[in-house]
Amino acid sequence: MSYRVIGIVVLAAILAAVPSIASEYWVALLTQVLIFGLLALSADLLLGHAGLFSLCHAAFFAVSAYTVAILQTRYGVTTIPAAVAGLVAGTLLAAVFASAVRTRGVYFILITLAFGYIVWGVAHRWASFTGGDNGVTNVPPPSLGGLQIVTKAHYYYFVLVVLAICLLGYRILTTSPFGLALRGIKSSESRMRSLGYRVGAHLYVAFIISGFYASLAGVLYIYYNRFVNPVAAGFPISVEAILMAIIGGTGTILGPFIGSGIILVLRNWVSGFFHYYTAVLGLIFIATVLWAPNGVMGLIRSWRSGNRGEGA
């Protein structure tokens, strides 16, 4: 326990020091890592805790980003109401898409895939409203009251604070009786039913909470990127979110962020000298599945328990 506290303090100190020791490029990249880590974490609430493999999380992410962008650029809505509207829009969409929890296994994957394509299709084809392929541009920087967040370093700190709050909430959620119930459902649905649990209702609520977190990632993304186009709603984003969670380690808080770091840093670094960088990501994913099915966090855990075994 004390090791965990020390770890969190050290990690927080390192993260807080980044803008003063690293270049703006790295600060921006790390901000992106945190935002996509949050998206991966949202998908992992379903995958790692409830055992549902969703392929539509880009939809909530994009709908909330588009909502904020359109309200700010066309209707002059200020940051806070626009952000709230984005969260509400994404979460409401999740409440509709959550009907997918009536299905399981490959049917759940296919239905969420189809839901994701609907949103992408709307973003892509309804050009008069969404701007089509051009998307929505010129989103202003966020301003909270009189405070405008303009520099990359300031936005990085803002993301860090928001993340700290929502990770605390996530931790409370997953360690609550509700979180325990989700893990029970992942392990055996029929057993949970015969203990008196309404499995469907639990999964429905988990899906909506997951959609809320994805929407929050969308809000953070739009103010980071300042523009949004249909790519944000695309299938690759949904897949990457899931891959980040798997590579980092599902069912953990840190895992999705580690996965996000690995994928985004590699993409930025490898794409500089190797055109087929997605092939490298593919190889990493295959290696993860073969040799580290529990991701980086799983490797760390087995390494630690191995050490403990030697010590004892």
Partner: peptide, 19 residues
Amino acid sequence: FKSLTVRENLLLPTSQLAK
């Protein structure tokens, strides 16, 4: 529930969510 601890196994039926 093999992926839960003994304590968690025992606490599952006592949750308000199961009542």
